[in-house]
Amino acid sequence: MKTPIGISGAAVALSLLTIAPDAAAFDFGTPANKTESAQNFAFELRFSPYRPQIDDEPGLTGAPFTQTFGSARRLLIQLELDWQMLRIPHVGTLGPGVAVGYTTMSADSKTLSGKESGDETFLSIYPFHLSGVLRADAVWREARIPLIPYAKLGVGYAHWRAGNSGGTSKVKDAAGNVIASGRGNSVGSNAALGVELVLEALDRGSVRNLDSATGINHAYVFAEYYLLTLNGFGAGDSLRVGTKSWAMGLTFEF
């Protein structure tokens, strides 16, 4: 079983960060100061076009996903919560983040004789990921450039369910025994690079008011490209419901 290079690299980098002898180089969270309340978390509301990589599975004959659902992308709605555990001076925040989302797709079925039918077939995907998130907000805090780059690296996971009008799909052998069920889980890796537009650069006063009223320190609009590679880390029996796509949304730090 091979481990992706990205994951190995992340492991090394994170290990170096955490076991470095100069413990004083890091702060836990971002303490309050004269103008801002303490900041420890980030919340993201994410929207992304989503097309799973099912047809990329080696050994498949044809493209069953595309043949059934077409090539149009579906909308993934996702929520992410990041714990900005560490503040690295002159860099930004680092910590774990967890995201959960949902997307679904359906299509009209046909009878095996090719006629229009009253049945539908569908695939629902609930993608999760647990990642390390590095936000280089020193670009704004120190250089006053209102674009904050960030990176995420971690493990991805998705629960999926494939079914039809009668419920979850079942594949039976000639003897009628169920040999595969349309409900399962896929694991893999998650990597993302993105940039956040600092909204307080447009209206600093309102963000300060927001902080004093709600504790939200900063708000951003972000754009991100991500790779959610749910291939079971190379295991052959994993439904590849991950994707390569971009996402946009809002981030709130608090």
Partner: peptide
């Protein structure tokens, strides 16, 4: 009727749930 997961399985897909 046609069903995505059955079609995937017939196409050689290895995921079994």
């Amino acid at each position: 009727t046609t069903d995505f997961f059955r079609d995937y399985n017939r196409a050689g897909g290895k995921a079994t749930g």
